[in-house]
Amino acid sequence: MMTKLRHYAHLVRLDRPIGIYLLLWPTLWALWIAAEGVPNLTILLVFIAGVVLMRSAGCAINDYADRDVDPHVARTKARPLAAGHLSPNEALGVFAVLSLLAFALALLLNGLTIALSVVAVLLAATYPFMKRFHHLPQVHLGAAFAWAIPMAFTATTGTMPPLVAWLLFLAALLWTTAYDTMYAMCDREDDVKIGVKSSAILFGEHDRLIIGILQILTLLLLMVVGILAELGLWYWLGWLVACGLSAYQQWLIRHREPQPSLQAFLNNHWLGMAIFIGLVADYAF
């Protein structure tokens, strides 16, 4: 029984919470800006739990979609489905249960947010299959991760998200595309062999340049968000830290080696945290 539970935990990556963090930070950015400070406790708890559930559900459906691919990729061949520890139907069941739990949480929010939550589930369910159809599944993932932003605004205000929310959405989408391309650089050789598409393959020798452009656009959008939301010194200090971390990530991927590229991907956790700490401090002081 314990072994089975351990396989389920690995299926939803509870042992690797980086995905939870990367989905959580933009969600918290949006909640603080929408509330102009500390959000309603119930809304905050619903979104934190929703992040954990939807990221876990996304991992389950991702492994289902990649069940025939993961055994051929060095980094993923030990995953529960690839190794035969769990069946495809079990992964589908986990995805369904976690998605339903997340939707049940959304029912605690207003009608507009509930409607937007349906889009969130559709984005999470379809993302893993996109790498078979086009070279930009990272953009699809960006939309899935960033969709919590308009939801946070509707949950807080009860109205359609304002311009600042959509600019923040676009910033999160571009940021996700940048860091997930770093992640895709780790698997580029394996992906080419097995015919899986990714932005890292599409960008080729221009990968660092395009990632850099995406990073600059993300930071510029976060600058505009700060101006529109009339944020002060603490936010801009967090923004400057984010600029420094973006430069550090470029240094890490300079040779396009798998392990440093993975480190650059993981480093984005601190970038998201820097922006959030700046927001919290700015509204607090």
Rank of each mutant, 00 (worst) to 15 (best):
L81Q: 10
T218G: 00
L167Y: 08
P162Q: 00
G50W: 09
E205D: 14
F47N: 05
F103P: 00
Q263P: 04
L86H: 09
V52H: 03
L22H: 15
L44Y: 14
L53H: 07
L266E: 03
T157Y: 06
L122N: 00
P17D: 01
L136N: 09
L122G: 00
A152S: 15
F265E: 06
G204L: 00
F169G: 08
T154D: 06
T218Q: 00
M182K: 02
L245K: 04
S99V: 07
T156V: 10
A171F: 14
A102G: 11
Q249H: 07
L28W: 10
H140L: 12
E36I: 11
L86Q: 12
Q250M: 13
Y179H: 09
I194D: 01
F169L: 15
A65W: 09
L45N: 11
Y21V: 03
V164E: 12
I20M: 14
M185R: 01
I277C: 08
L240S: 14
V38N: 11
N89V: 00
D187I: 04
F145C: 11
R188E: 15
Y235N: 14
L271G: 07
L222Y: 14
W29Y: 12
L222C: 11
M160Y: 11
F47A: 08
M54C: 12
L262H: 12
L217G: 01
N62C: 13
H134E: 05
E90W: 03
A49Q: 12
A9H: 11
H72E: 14
R256G: 08
W270V: 04
A242N: 02
L11V: 13
L279E: 08
P161T: 03
F133Q: 12
Y248T: 00
I277V: 15
V38C: 12
Q250H: 09
P258Y: 11
I43D: 15
T76H: 01
V51T: 15
H72R: 15
P80G: 00
L163S: 08
R13M: 09
Y183I: 10
D180H: 09
A284G: 03
L271A: 14
N110W: 04
P162V: 00
L112K: 08
F203K: 01
A229Q: 13
V12K: 04
V119H: 06
F145N: 03
A247P: 04
W236K: 10
K193I: 05
C243D: 02
T157G: 05
L23D: 13
I149M: 04
L170Y: 06
D63N: 13
Y64H: 13
G158M: 08
V69R: 01
L44I: 11
M54I: 14
N40M: 03
H269C: 09
V73H: 02
Y179N: 05
P128H: 11
L101N: 07
I211S: 03
T218P: 02
H85N: 07
G84K: 00
M185K: 03
V51H: 10
F47D: 07
M223L: 09
H140S: 11
T157I: 07
R6C: 01
N268H: 14
G111D: 04
L245F: 08
R55L: 07
Y21N: 01
L219T: 06
W147L: 13
L105Q: 02
L81T: 07
C243I: 14
E36H: 15
G111N: 04
A106F: 08
C243L: 15
M54Q: 13
G272T: 07
G158R: 06
P39R: 02
I194C: 06
A242Q: 03
M54P: 06
A152D: 13
A78F: 12
E36D: 15
